[in-house]
Design a protein around this nucleic acid. Structure first.
Lengths: 252, 252
DNA sequence: TCAAAAGTGTTTGACCTACACCCATGG
DNA sequence: CCATGGGTGTAGGTCAAACACTTTTGA
């Protein structure tokens, strides 16, 4: 349910034996009848850099977990009527200055002791963005002086709270999803080379793949269109650039 | 993040331009600095009956959405230090009297207008249970007189709130997961026949499968051990009963 | 003996893996 | 020419779909 309103009265008293089904009268509820948790949205901000998928973490300056690294996030703004995804987008923008980035809900964490200070429910999202988007943007290690840094998903520092399990869940989700959904392209420039695309997959899957088979497989799932542009940075044939042009229609 | 504490002060004032990174001093926070949403946990309770996967819904007696059907759920109990999963388990027990049932988190819904009365964040779970567990238990259409009834997942009535999309997400999740995880067995008795197992898969996938291929595929994934028992309810060879005995080890 | 259930076998084709090999192109 | 990137071909293996068929067993 999302909407049975609590009865009036003290929180504990309101929860009687049959209290699991509460009156729905619009005229008979008190939105403060139950104590409420704080709700935050954390965003695992991912980029692809130096052959690896990296996530942006911030170093905590204060207890608890002082000097450990944490996933950036913030409180849901009730007054602003933010949806969860809007909160995630706002956090992402505050942290990186970017809008319009791919965002997906990961999972919600609500263990009563995950934050020693107070009861916090955290909805985790993840974002996938291209390096070029960050070019002019400085990642802001915000005012109260936390460091911010990128870490490869497979070589993380010691993390605060239950954030290790959040990132474990993230890696599992992304590795599973990359096989059937075109999410890898969000980590690359609009024009990319085969070698780059393959490197993203290899990083996510954690193992090498054979180039010819990889390309056939990708082309059987997605339209990969050549651009006119090239990439030349040394000896050898310059790499051609391609762009993602949607998934193949599945009917017929 | 799950833990940066809000600054002291009025909610709006606390959220300054740089407010996304808040002080972590344990000595410097006020857990009421931000307005909080209510948090509920809804549980999609599923059984397998008459050849179909069914979900338990309750009929709303009061506005909003009076007389529409809704997924049962309830408020997270802060004082009791419940985890989200414990809340789901409690709701399940209150609704059906059952404990120890398979539970899995589905997704979290937080649109600001999903409940017209107040801001509610709902974490949806789903439960899979066997018919035999319900045998002596009456499903309680709780005191304030809501009806409770089972509906096939593919033929749902008009639903309250955003519960239609919750159940859409549920079907998609279950259909995807049944292919690689042994979740179907939770819907069957410990001893089941091949025909029953196949019917569960066909119901979830929404299409018929060929029995011989189906059995080979299942047996390649899981240990299916014969029991000594049988099932005889008419002419024809009585169906032998089997039990699930884990997944095959994947190393070798 | 019939009907339903369990189980075997086989054919076909798709697809994945691994590798060999060729072509293109800028330095 | 050569190093690198793009691309084709293909042999072998695995696996799944589809279907035919046999065996078992209680009513």
């Amino acid at each position: 349910m999302s909407a049975r309103a609590p009865k009036r009265g003290k929180p504990r008293a309101a929860k009687t034996a049959e209290g699991h089904l509460l009156k729905d009268d619009a005229s008979n509820y008190d939105k403060n009848a139950f104590e409420k948790p704080s709700v935050t949205v954390d965003v695992c901000i991912c980029r692809f850099h130096a052959g690896e998928v990296e996530v942006l973490l911030i170093k905590r300056k204060h207890p608890p977990f002082r000097n450990l690294w944490a996933i950036p996030g913030g409180f849901l703004q009730i007054e602003a009527e933010e949806s969860l995804e809007e909160t995630a987008a706002r956090e992402l923008e505050e942290e990186t200055g970017l809008k319009g980035v791919y965002l997906e809900q990961l999972k919600t964490y609500g263990d009563p002791r995950r934050d020693p200070r107070m009861r916090i429910i955290t909805v985790a999202y993840f974002a996938l963005l291209r390096m070029s988007a960050l070019a002019d943007q400085t990642v802001r290690a915000a005012d109260d002086a936390k460091e911010a840094a990128w870490f490869p998903l497979r070589r993380l520092p010691k993390l605060a709270f239950d954030h290790q399990s959040v990132l474990d869940d993230l890696l599992q989700r992304v590795a599973g999803k990359v096989a059937y959904a075109p999410i890898a392209f969000h980590l690359l420039e609009p024009a990319f080379t085969w070698a780059e695309l393959q490197a993203v997959y290899e990083s996510i899957l954690g193992k090498p793949v054979l180039a010819p088979n990889f390309r056939r497989k990708i082309q059987s799932q997605y339209r990969i269109e050549p651009t006119q542009t090239q990439r030349s940075q040394g000896p050898g044939r310059p790499a051609a650039e391609f762009r993602f042009d949607g998934v193949w229609e599945e009917g017929f």
